[in-house]
Structure formats: C-alpha cells, structure tokens
Design a protein around this nucleic acid. Structure first.
Lengths: 206, 206, 206, 206
DNA sequence: ACTTAAACGAGACGGTACGTCCCGTCTTTGC
DNA sequence: GCAAAGACGGGACGTACCGTCTCGTTTAAGT
C-alpha cells in the first residue's frame, strides 16, 4: 500500500523482498533508537538497500514509518460478543492491544508530523481510526437491535470515550502497561453505564 | 522557570524583555509553521535576539518550546462544586480548556521528544499532569467525605477516564473543537456513573 | 568502433539503427547541456533506447562520449603540398578544423577523465593524436628528402609547436574562432622559421 | 579571495585557520585521488571542518578547487632580461613552471567546468591568463622600445604561440615533463624567429 | 567614576540528516 | 538472445538545523 505506481507494465518490477526489508529495517531501527533517531540512511543500511529504493516507494520518511508501524491496518472481523457490555469490552481490549504494539514516541512523532502533511493525516484517519469507528457503529447498532439502547448515539463520542482513556494511559500518563487490561474493562463498564442507565443523553449530534 | 543560573552576582543581569521576546517568538513561529518547522534560528530572528541568549536560558529547543506552551501551568485553586458529578464536570472543562490552548502537533511533538529526554519527561509529568492528578485526588476524597463514595478509587484510572476522551477528541480524532464542551459534560457523567452506581470496582490497585 | 563483442554468432544481431541513435543522441545532449550535464539516462531517453543497449556497446559513459565525438578519427591521407612550409600550413589547418568540431568543454572533460582511465587514455592518444603524429613524421621526412632540413628533428616537439597554439587559442584562451585560420598560417610560419633558419637545434632527444 | 562577504561587521569573524585548512585539504585530496574523485565531504573531513564552512566560502565545489589550485595568482613582477629572445625564454619558463604545478586532470576538469559556470570562467580568464597576457604585452612593448620590433604585434597571438606548445606538451600530449625546460627554450626561439626575421606579419588585428 | 563580569546581537563552527541525482548492473516482458 | 523499461546498491551533491563558540559592544553592580 502507498507504494505508488501501478500504471506502466514495462520494466523491472519492484522486488517484494526489498519492500519487506525496508519495513523490517524501519521497525528494527525504531526499536533500537526511537523515532527521533531514525535515519533514512540507517534504515537503508540496515535493509541492505539504496536510499533510492526507499524514496521510490515512499515520498517521505514519515510515509515509510507510517507504513512500517500503523499502516497495515488489517481489518480483522469483529465478532458479536452477545451484549453491549461484552462488545465494548472486546473493543477496548483490541484497541489496547493495537496501541501497545507501537512505542509511545513513534505514535506521537507520527501524530506531530501529520499536522504538516495533510495527505498523510487523511490516510492516518482512514487507516488507523476508520476501522475502529466502523466497529463502534456496528456495536451500537447491535445494541439497538438487542433493545439495549433505544437509539444509536453519536459514534464519535463513544469512540472518544473508549479509546481516549486507553490512549492516555499508555501514551500520555505512561502508567504501567500491564494494567491496561483491567483499565479496558473499566472503560467498557463506564461507557456501558453511561449509555444504558442514563439513557441516550450523549447524542449530541442527532 | 527553568532559567538556570542563580550563582554569580557580578555581571550584567538577564534582560527580562529578552525572556518575553523569546517566549512570544516561539509561540508565533509555532502558530506560523507548526512544531516540525520550528527552528531555533527562526525564533532568534523573530525575537530579534541572538541564539546564545536562547541557549543561555534553555538547555534545549524542547525546553524552550515546553516553557512557551505548557510550561507555565499556573496551578489555579480548584473550588468545591458541591457534588462528585459537578466536581468532575468542572475538572473536565478545565482540562478541555487547557488542551485547547495548544495546537495538536505541538503537544504531540513534545510528547514524542519526551521519550528521548527523561529530564524533560519528568518535568512534563510534574508540571502538566501533576496538577491535574492532585485535583483528581482531592475530588475523590471530597466525594468520600460526602459519602458519595465508600472509598477512594485509583486516581490514575480516574485521571485516564476523564482526560483520555477529551485528549483523544481534540488531539487524535481531531473532531470539532466546538463540541468539546458537551463532551466534557458527557465524560463527567460517564465517570460519575461508573464510580457511584456500579460501586468501587475500579480500585484496581488497592 | 570499440563495440566489444566479435565472438558469438547465435542470437539476434545488434540493431545498427540503435548504434546510430546512441551516437546522435549523445551529440545532441552534449550540444544541449554540455559535458557536465550529460547523463546516460538522458542519452538513452533521447535515443529511445534502454540503458542496457548503451552499456552493451560501451564499457563507460566516457567511452560513449569518446566514440560520439573524437572517436571516429578517419585517417584521411595527407597530400604532399610541395614544401615544408606548405605542408605545415596544411597540417595546421587540418588540426584547427578538427578542434573546431568539438566544443571546448567536451574535449576538456574527456581529457580530465583520461587521467582516471588509462585504457581510454591510451585509445585517445592513439586515435586522436597518433594520426597527427604520423603526419608530422612524414612531413619532416619529406623535408629532409627535399634537403630543406639536414636531419629529422624530434617529432614530439614539432607536434607540440604546431598543435599547441591552435589548441590554446580555441580551448584555453577561447579567442575568436574565426581568426583561427590566420593563426594556423602564423604557426606554420613560426615553425618553419625555427626549423630552417636556425638549423636543427630542436632535436633535444638524439 | 572569492570569499564573498565584506559587508556586515557584527558576528564572529571567519577563522583564517579554517580557510587554510580547506585550501590545504583540497590540494591533498586532489593529489591523492585526482579531480574526479574529489569529494566535498572528503575535503571537509580531511580539513577537520564542517561542510557548511566550505559552502559559506565557496558557492560551488569548483570555486573551491579553483581557489586551491590556480586561484591565488600572485602576480610576481617580471624582470627585464635584456632582449626579446631572453624575455620570451623567461616567460616560457614561468609558464612551464606554473603549468607543472597543477596536475593534468585538475586543470582539464576545471576547464571543462568553466563551460557551465560563466562567472567562474570570467574569473579564470582574469586570474590565470590575465597576468600572463600583461607580461606578453610588456615584453612586446620593450622589444619595440629596443627597436627589435618595428611595431607591437597582436598579443593574443603571441600568447597562444608561447603558452600553447607548453600546455600541449604537458597536458595533452603528456610527454616527458623533465624535457619541458628545453621545450620552453625552443618555443622562445621559434617565436623570436617569427617576430624578428619574418617581420611583423602576425598582427592580424591591427 | 571606574572596574569588572556577564549578557547581548551576530554569525561562524563541527556535525548530522535530508531528499535528489546519477552511475553501472540486474531483471523483467515482449519480439 | 536482443530490445525497452525501469528497479537495484552505492555514493556524492548542496541545503538546513542543531547546539557551541567567538567576536565586539552594552549594561549594571561593586568598588
């Protein structure tokens, strides 16, 4: 993905081993020295690849990092856990797992760079957040069908309520990551409580 | 703050106008080009100041940005709003206001750089988060005194629950900032619901 | 010339139209941007040819340029003009014509590159200078036979005396090229004067 | 020279040791690997200097090489040797010495690059050739005053006649450099012969 | 009033990384 | 097996910042 060029047929095709080597080297370098110390030369050297091979695939260092970290976004199917509470718990666990996979500084570095590059920002929103948002919508619709809720609340608000605390725990407060599992449970409880017991007051945008 | 040097007596004293000029220029440059494009030379030029004057005050570019954006953190007193729900709402509003003051990329850039510089990270935690944490603790204690809660839950969890969604709304999801006021209300509701109606299940760490 | 490969018989034969296209494209690109800006990719593109087709014919970019500019060196026969003076004048004219055919920077660029590549240097000496040297020797021998000279002077010295000023005029001093015809005449006069009137003092190497 | 900037007074002044280090390193690298292999990074490394320090002084790699090789052009005074023949001999020796100081490929590389950069070309003409030209003019005027010549011939032609053969001997024919002294003598003889015995036929441009 | 020590604007310094360009080689598909 | 197309590893280019270091000047406090 992102690997621009699909047009021309002629010529030597891109070597998929090079693609893999770049991605893997990026992850290695990121793990070694962190976002701030990642160098395109370092990645190229580690991958045993010329810099040109990298810039042929990614317009920018950021694009490369994006692809190597949060860019794949395999949208796994989301099973029905049986109740709103169980669904939300499952979603929280998944978000926690996803955020745990990326080091704090990498995600923040990427988020900082998004501000400069709107195109990358759009792709981030679509890739990284879009999948989650779809799941949120589906979970809420199921709850309405089960008659746990009378109507579908604003998905953006629910999304913020469930991903926010986990994001903050791991990437802002940098609290103990081993406790994130319990936190996910608590977040699901709080959201469920809000949505069911207090009614549907959170549909700010009808 | 951070302005090292207290020892020597002799010599020309620091010019406070220079301090202000640096802070203001930093904010201007950040507003103009964002975190990624901020250059020490640019700040110096804009402030009409030599680079030495900057590095005399801050060890690092990041320290400067920190001071110019989130570094002042005047810990305003936090009034008692009368109930847990009202206290939490007030806290959420305050967090929302604070986060709205800083552009998305600046905060993320800073957070990314914290990873590299532990000293700055410590100061960030203390300055930016410490005040909030104290308020969280106080709010919870008041609730126990009022007998709204039977015991004080883990403040870290509550902190994540209240600041997480707002942070995510503004700085990750980049949703409409005008709606953050309503969101703050919703977050307070959800947290109150969790703490009161479902008991004290969130004391993960006794 | 230089077109390595004579061995194999089997397989598709080289397309002579490709040879021509490469030579012509090289000259075009040289004329357009000069020696420093000549790129193999540019030549290939202009010739409508793959880079491989070029490197199948020439080991090096320099070989290609050499072939396209000074490499053909058709050794035209050199007629007897009747006297040493007339022979030298004719030789000077021929040298002037040859040097005028190549742009200043191309020849200098080539000469610079010769330093790095001894093989090319040898071929240059042989191709570009060897022909001239043979003519010099022949002219001097004729003069001895005509008894204009008592013995044959060092051909290297005479070669330098006749080609030097013309080379300098066109490629170092970059004086008016239209005056090179007159200069050629003057050079021939000076050399004749030296050889005849002052005797044979220039046989430095007996 | 060439070191642009004379305007501003404020700020740290250029360190002359850096100037020297760059010049010397350039000569070293040139001597080691030749013109084609000279790298700005290599020069910077060898000089123990940042690349910025180089580009602060020279717009271009070529400017740097120019300054380090033929750029100084200390115009030594030219003594009167007593006769046209002796003056020309002295001039030829001086030219030979100057050309011997620079390696073949460096001068050719520079000459090739002059084609691309007219500003550098102008400076080359002025610096490297201008001094010689002035001497030529002076030598001819002296000869007229001594009544060896009836009038002053075209200096450009004489210049080509004396520097051409030496240039060709060393830098095109690459003949034995130890014989250049004898050649210089021969060249002076030939030119004297032309100018005196055959009259002033070479004033092509009156 | 004079000395002294530090702060000041300016900008050069050694480094390091960027993203671009080119070389000469290798690898496809199609004739 | 040659051809066009173009990807490959390598390496230099010139630019931009970083954080440090002089310059020569200015400004207070301590004598």
């Amino acid at each position: 993905m992102t690997n621009r060029r699909q047009e021309g047929e002629g010529g030597r095709p891109r070597d998929p081993r090079v693609d893999d080597a770049i991605i893997q080297a990026t992850r290695d370098v990121l793990a070694t020295g962190g976002y701030a110390r990642l160098t395109v030369d370092a990645v190229a050297a580690r991958a045993g690849v010329g810099k040109a091979a990298i810039y042929r695939r990614y317009v920018t260092k950021q694009e490369m990092i994006f692809s190597a970290t949060v860019g794949d976004a395999r949208s796994e199917s989301f099973p029905d856990a049986g109740s709103l509470s169980a669904d939300l718990t499952l979603l929280c666990q998944r978000i926690a797992r996803k955020l745990s996979a990326t080091t704090s500084d990498v995600l923040h570095g990427l988020l900082a760079d998004l501000y400069v590059d709107p195109a990358l920002a759009a792709r981030f929103t679509e890739t990284f957040l879009g999948g989650e948002r779809l799941i949120v919508v589906e979970v809420l619709q199921r709850a309405v069908e089960r008659e746990e809720l009378s109507r579908v609340p604003d998905p953006a608000v629910v999304h913020a309520l469930v991903m926010g605390p986990i994001f903050a725990w791991l990437l802002v407060l940098t609290e103990d990551p081993t406790k994130v599992h319990d936190l996910a449970h608590t977040v699901a409880q709080a959201t469920t409580a809000l949505l069911t017991e207090l009614g549907t007051k959170c549909d700010q945008a009808p």
